[in-house]
Computed example of a mutant assay.
Amino acid sequence: MAALLSSRLRFRTGLERALRDREARVRLLADNIADIVIVMDRKGYLRYVSPLVTVVGKTETDFLGRLCLDVVHEDDRERVLAASRELKGASASRFGSLSHAARRRRDALARGQFQDRRTLAGR
């Protein structure tokens, strides 16, 4: 029994280390990419904003915890909502066979995760 528990603990520890390493690589990429990166939860609340958001005169804390549509310029909201409706109603065959991660990225795009600098600046 002790050997089984020890084996499971080593396996879990390895998985946790791999997850931390992967998260560190993704954060390094997101923090240094030449685009603004925004991550939101399933309800549309912003949970991460890359430091490059300063190019539009804002700080990360100006966005964190806000709803995605709150940071979309009013002139662009209908377009973002239309894109979201289109993607939500699309069948899997339209997008091919998507992995879980690819579906999450597609859904984030539909909710307006990727905004251009004009939209984020409120212009």
Rank of each mutant, 00 (worst) to 15 (best):
M1A: 11
A2N: 13
A2Y: 13
A3R: 08
L4F: 12
L4N: 09
L5Q: 13
S7H: 13
S7W: 12
R8E: 14
R8H: 10
L9A: 04
R10P: 02
F11S: 15
T13Q: 14
T13P: 01
T13D: 12
L15Q: 14
L15R: 05
E16V: 06
R17F: 09
R17N: 12
L19T: 12
R20H: 12
R20A: 14
D21E: 15
D21G: 01
E23H: 14
E23P: 06
E23I: 12
E23R: 13
E23M: 09
A24F: 05
A24M: 13
R27E: 15
R27I: 15
L29I: 08
L29A: 06
A30N: 08
A34M: 12
D35W: 01
D35E: 15
I36N: 00
V37G: 01
I38A: 05
V39T: 08
V39I: 09
M40F: 05
D41R: 12
D41E: 12
R42Q: 10
R42N: 14
Y45S: 14
L46H: 03
R47F: 02
Y48A: 11
Y48W: 11
S50N: 02
P51Q: 05
L52V: 07
T54E: 12
V55G: 00
V56K: 09
G57K: 10
G57W: 02
K58Y: 11
K58T: 05
T59Y: 06
E60Q: 12
F63V: 05
F63R: 03
G65D: 08
R66P: 04
L67Y: 04
L67A: 08
C68I: 04
L69G: 00
L69W: 01
V71Y: 07
V72H: 01
V72Q: 00
V72M: 07
H73K: 08
E74G: 02
D75W: 08
D75E: 15
D76T: 09
D76L: 01
R77Q: 04
E78P: 00
E78I: 02
R79E: 14
V80D: 02
L81I: 07
A82H: 01
A83K: 04
S84K: 01
E86L: 13
L87Y: 11
K88S: 03
A92E: 15
A92S: 14
A92K: 05
F95V: 06
F95C: 09
F95M: 00
S97Q: 15
L98Y: 01
L98I: 07
H100N: 13
H100L: 13
A101S: 06
A102R: 08
A102Y: 03
A102W: 07
R104N: 03
R104C: 06
R105N: 10
R106S: 06
R106T: 00
D107T: 02
D107K: 04
A108G: 09
A108S: 03
A108T: 00
A108L: 03
L109Q: 05
L109H: 02
L109E: 07
R111K: 11
Q113Y: 04
Q113D: 03
F114W: 01
Q115D: 10
R117H: 10
R117F: 05
R117S: 11
R118I: 10
R118D: 06
A121K: 09
G122Q: 09
R123M: 07
R123C: 08
